[in-house]
Nucleic acid binder design. Structure first.
Lengths: 339, 339
DNA sequence: TTGTATGCGTTATCAA
DNA sequence: TTGATAACGCATACAA
């Protein structure tokens, strides 16, 4: 069996067919000046007829630009990232770029290997979401790329070719706790997510700050860490509830966890929101699907994705001199039925 | 501002440093024979020290292999595809390949443009999920690629370099309807999804076949098409219910739609599953999150993703002579609480 | 306005 | 076991 394709038409083929030099065709394909309108039209028609498409990889070798971006996410199956990735890819497509998607799976070696792999592909830039790498490793991993956008990670020393975009998780948690306080809840639990997560840490900070502002003493027994999934949230909530049966509200690390919290409450004979109010984070589609509808800290994931891609493009194309290197996104609270 | 990176070390740099020719280094990096063990070790050490990584794009130009696969999906934000993509990417990573992800957004021109874009990147193969292109367009779009895997689309004429993998949606629907029949339901509605979807068509076929086998006459008024999302399913169900108030079961196009069906039933004062049994399709994570837990037609999305990537690799690497060009995946019914 | 020579980083081919 | 040379397809710099 031979599955040899018919050879791809090259710029040379077109030049030969048009009886002109390579360069004339090259100029036409790149829309550069210096070709008579008549010739231009003739070549365009011919190229189209011959179904000629310039090889991006030959072009890349010559120009050092591949019109290609690396996108690192912990897990595309997580709706949080899936939604963002869609935003990234939409903008990429509009602007003629293509996305290399890699899942790190929260796995150390895999993330390092991913950087190496992308480096070999000579990408124009890389967008790194929620990297779990230690700060030193991360810095050395990204420094070699021409442009970098870091999502939900901060660098000690800002670098010229990297933009950092962060969700103000602390503010989000504060808004949530303030709302809970406002509806009269004072024994507020926190199902806090992974202890190693930067976001989790920032949300804990916000939680404490809001309690502090209301002069409520912090009770460590109201905190329970867990993996960022529904069932883990459910289990963690049972633990929390058995330790502090009088809790009258719970803030969850994310919406997935929040659903687990609600399940546990129901299993423990508590009504949501009457007995226990529940607030999630992120506002993924699930939040409006579940009953009671989830009150949650909202961020526009799709818009963030678009922003990530926009940012890396200004870094690449405009050399983005007058562009802020640090950007933060303020979430808002969406009040639905669970609190 | 200059964000010029330090130049990437090339094979020439390493050769010069090692006082050998390009070719020797090339042989070592590719693990090819014909280099003395001593030299090999010396060069390996040197390359490592100099942090040398071969440029995949130069290599691609020389070999016509880019270790790169295109992956077309309608929408990565759809958990069905997100889960599959994760499986694809996992295998790709294990095998040293990188994935170009593109969303077609169910949009005609965008899908065509995506094929063009991937063609220019000189990918080694493309995995196409649930293409919405008319058959002729699809065939002409894929024929130029060296290897193609088609998911949930069938070609009239099997081609040598394309493998087709399909979920047996008809069987899935049959299993669901048979179960419904088995628990005594006879007025079974179908919230059928998009009329243009191949899967929807196949599920309708299965639905009719199962009714037929049970000698129940087909009632078109029990069918309602809708977009494949929760709220659309909810609306469609209200329509269906107002037309056929005595329906005692509903099969939904997918799990998202099934949740909408359950919501509509509750809004219409029906209990699930007592008054109306509900069955979904796909078994996405949501199915076990929602209450009552969703009875659904199960497929292992992650495994399918892995299979897609495996298939394209055998097409590429083994020239897959003795490999079936058509493969079908039989779903199974997972009985939980909603039916 | 058009063309020629050269190089991008790598592998393939052939020679030593 | 090693090395020199020619591609791969395109763009840049410079000539005509």
């Amino acid at each position: 069996m031979e599955n040899e394709m018919k050879k791809r038409t090259t710029i040379t083929d077109v030049a030969r067919a048009a009886q002109v030099s390579l360069m004339t065709v090259s100029r036409v394909m790149n829309g550069k000046p210096g070709v008579s309108e008549e010739l231009r039209q003739r070549i365009l028609a011919l190229a189209d007829e011959m179904d000629y498409r310039p090889s991006q990889i030959a072009r890349g070798l010559a120009t050092r630009h591949t019109a290609t971006i690396g996108l690192l996410v912990p897990d595309i199956a997580n709706p949080f990232f899936a939604q963002m990735v869609r935003g990234v890819e939409d903008v990429a497509f509009e602007r003629g770029y293509t996305i290399f998607l890699i899942n790190t799976g929260e796995h150390y070696e895999r993330e390092l290997a991913a950087f190496d792999s992308l480096w070999q592909k000579e990408i124009d830039g890389v967008i790194v979401c929620s990297s779990r790498l230690p700060i030193a490793e991360l810095e050395s991993a990204i420094q070699r790329f021409p442009a970098v956008v870091l999502f939900n990670r901060e660098l000690a020393t800002p670098m010229d070719h990297v933009t950092m975009i962060n969700i103000n998780d602390q503010l989000g948690a504060e808004l949530a706790v303030e709302h809970l306080l406002g509806i009269g809840r004072t024994r507020i639990g926190l199902v806090a997510g992974p202890a190693t997560s930067v976001s989790a840490q920032r949300r804990l900070d916000g939680y404490r700050a809001a309690l502090n502002a209301a002069k409520i003493v912090f009770d460590p027994a109201l905190i329970e860490y867990c993996a960022p999934f529904t069932d883990d949230g459910r289990v963690a909530t049972h633990t929390l509830l058995s330790r502090r049966p009088k809790a009258d509200a719970i803030l969850a690390f994310n919406d997935l966890v929040a659903v687990g919290v609600m399940q546990a409450c129901q299993e423990a004979g508590r009504r949501v929101p009457e007995d226990i109010a529940v607030i999630g984070c992120d506002d993924i589609p699930l939040a409006t699907i579940i009953r009671p509808r989830l009150t949650t800290v909202h961020v526009d994931l799709n818009a963030i994705g678009r922003m990530l891609m926009d940012s890396i493009l200004t870094l690449i194309e405009c050399e983005g001199d007058d562009d802020p290197r640090v950007r933060t996104i303020d979430p808002s609270l969406v009040i639905r039925e669970s609190a």
